[in-house]
Design a protein around this nucleic acid. Sequence first.
DNA 1: CAATCATTGCAACATTGTTGCGTTTATTTA
DNA 2: TAAATAAACGCAACAATGTTGCAATGATTG
Lengths: 142, 142
Amino acid sequence: MFMFNKLHRTAEELIRHSGGRVTVGRIRILSVLLAEQQAITHREIEQRLPQTLQLDRVTLYRALEWLADKNLIHKVTSDDRAWRYHANRELHTHQHAHFKCTRCAQMICLDDLPIERSWPLPAGYRFQEIELTVKGLCADCS
Amino acid sequence: MFMFNKLHRTAEELIRHSGGRVTVGRIRILSVLLAEQQAITHREIEQRLPQTLQLDRVTLYRALEWLADKNLIHKVTSDDRAWRYHANRELHTHQHAHFKCTRCAQMICLDDLPIERSWPLPAGYRFQEIELTVKGLCADCS
DNA sequence: CAATCATTGCAACATTGTTGCGTTTATTTA
DNA sequence: TAAATAAACGCAACAATGTTGCAATGATTG
C-alpha cells in the first residue's frame, strides 16, 4: 500500500490533535479506516491490521469507541447486528445516508444524499438525528 | 385486556388465511403484536405472553420469522442489535419510517412519512428498499 | 529518569440469534 | 373417527458480537 506512510502520518496527526494519547493501535486503526472506501466491521478492521500488530478484541472496540467520540470516525448501524466504521472526511461529518448491498454486505457512504435536518414528528417528540440505509445490489453484485 | 378476544380471533383468521398451521403459539404472538402500538423486541413479546403459554425462545424466533414471511408482521432494525417486530396494518404494508427514542428505546412507526421509492445511486447500483430511523426523544422522555 | 494515569490484555460474562434432531401435534386421508 | 403425515415444537449446543473488571503496561509530563 503505497499510500501507507502518508495515511499513517495523517492518522497520527489527527489523533494527537484530539488530545488523547498517541498509541500504535489507534494510529494503525485509523490508518486502516482512512484507506478504506467502505464502512467496515470490527472483524474486517482486524483482518486489515498488519500481522505484527494484532490487537486484543476489547482494545479494538475501545479504540473505535474513542475515535468515534473524538469525531474522527463514525459508526453505522446495520441489519446484521454488527457495527461498521468509517473515517470522517470533511464531506460527511454531517448526516448522510449509507448503502448496503443485500448480497455481499458491502456498505458505502452516500455523500451526495443530503438529509433534511428535521422531520414531522408526533406532538411532544423531539428530533435528534436520522439513520438512513438504502439497500440493494452493488455494481459487482447486480 | 378487553380487546383480547377480538384480537385473538383476528389473529387466528389471518394465520389461517396465510395457509400455514394454526397453532396456539402463532395466534398468541400475533395477538400480542396486534395489541401493541410500538415495535417490540423478542424479549418484550415473551413478557407479554400469558404465563400459561411460555414458548421456547427458538419457537418464538421461528414463529416470528414465519409471520414476517407471510407479511403479517415486519421486522425493524435497530442500533441495539435486537430486532423489533410490529404487526402490519394496511396503512404501512409499504415502506415507512420508524422513530426510536434514544432514552427509553421505545420504537414506533411513522406511518405518515412516505418514503420515495428510489434514490440516486452510483452507476451500476440497484435499489431494493430503504430503512429509515429517526432518533430523538419521545413525548414521555423529552 | 521517575511518577502518573490513560491504555492495554486477559478472563469471564452477557445478549441475541441459529442449527440439529428427536418429539409432539395440526391437519389430511382412509 | 382413527391412522398417517408433515409441519411445529422443545431442548441442547453453538455462534457472533459486544461488555466489564482488574491487574499489567506504557505514553506523557515534570
